[in-house]
Every structure is written in structure tokens, then in C-alpha cells.
């Protein structure tokens, strides 16, 4: 996993970060807003053969062919239904664009690094290695994702070279 760039924890102590919060099923999540390219409604995608079910397919984002991942399917949260409220967050990660399907986008929150509590070891759909921590906002717990690590992880298998590098 060494090849995956991670945010150095030290830098978080002093920096105030903005997170985009969204919901998957009943849970509230947040991700670094700097990684977000745009937010758009769910559109039908072109299915890709031999891909796991959580990779819905690809779509045309102004000339780029972009894969769409349904995190709800991957991590068994909520119900993978697609209606006019279903949202796709387009992420810009490692020079690549990836769309993730979520149930709803709620807010942008400002978070001091010191407010972020360490993530629980269990009880969350995501493996703790993909989490920054928990942030209490308005009596809600928001689970902050390390989205970069999650998207480029081998577990999702989105990127070829990543997998190759890890095997090597």
C-alpha cells in the first residue's frame, strides 16, 4: 500500500478542512471537498462486462469516459435504488475521474482537525483504513472518508496500474 499517496496526519492538526457530506442509507459520510469535481444526477450508464456489480459502468462526462461506482452495493449500505434523487459525485483523484453513486448530498461542513475523533475499529461499513475519523456535527456523527485511498484501493479494482504495482 506504500504506493498510495496518503495525507500526512501532521498536516491535519492545524488545517481546517472542508468536507462534503452525503448519505448512504441511514449513515452520514463526509469527503474532502477538494477531491470533488462536480455533483450531478444519476444517468443511465453503459455497462461493462466482467466488472463487479458495484461498478455500474461508464458514462460520458464531456468527452471523458468515466467509471461509475455504487458504494452502496460495494459496502452493503442502504438500498441500491436509482431514482431522480440519486446523486453521482464526480471525484478527481490521481489525475483520474471517478463517479460515486450516493443517496443524497447534504452539506458542506468546516472541520478543525482537532474536532475529528479517531474512527471506530468496527461498526462502520468501511474498513477503518479508508476512514479519517468521526466528526460530530449537530448531534450527528459524520464518518469522514479517506476517499482517495478508497477509490485507488485494490479492493475496488478501478485502476489497472495500481493493482499491478501492488502485486509487484
Amino acid at each position: 500500500m506504500n504506493n498510495q499517496p496518503t495525507v500526512a496526519p501532521a498536516s491535519q492538526d492545524t488545517v481546517s478542512l472542508e468536507y462534503l457530506t452525503f448519505t448512504l442509507g441511514d449513515e452520514h459520510y463526509g469527503l474532502d471537498i477538494m477531491k470533488v469535481r462536480e455533483i450531478r444526477g444519476y444517468e443511465p450508464v453503459t455497462k461493462i462486462a466482467n466488472a463487479p456489480a458495484f461498478i455500474k459502468g461508464v458514462l460520458n462526462l464531456r468527452g471523458d469516459i468515466v467509471p461509475i461506482v455504487d458504494l452502496r452495493l460495494k459496502f452493503n449500505v442502504g438500498e441500491a435504488s436509482y431514482n431522480e434523487f440519486t446523486i453521482v459525485i464526480m471525484l478527481h483523484i490521481n489525475e483520474r475521474i471517478v463517479g460515486i453513486v450516493v443517496d443524497a448530498v447534504s452539506d458542506v461542513i468546516n472541520m478543525q482537525a482537532s474536532d475529528i475523533k479517531p474512527p471506530p475499529e468496527f461498526g462502520v461499513a468501511f474498513d477503518s483504513q479508508y476512514l479519517y475519523g468521526l466528526a460530530p456535527v449537530n448531534e450527528q456523527m459524520i464518518i469522514l472518508l479517506n476517499i482517495e485511498k478508497l477509490i485507488s484501493s485494490q479492493e475496488l479494482g478501478l485502476f489497472d496500474n495500481n493493482a499491478v504495482a501492488l502485486e509487484g
Binding site: 462486462a49 461508464v58 469516459i65 468515466v66 475521474i97 479494482g157 478501478l158 485502476f159
Partner: peptide, 13 residues
């Protein structure tokens, strides 16, 4: 268009 730019190689495609 390249699939690999944002995704990866798909067999048969």
C-alpha cells in the same frame, strides 16, 4: 476514447 484513462483495460474491448 480511452477507457484506461479513468478506468482500466477491459478484456474484449
Amino acid at each position: 476514447k480511452s477507457l484506461e484513462q479513468h478506468y482500466r483495460r477491459v478484456p474484449g474491448v
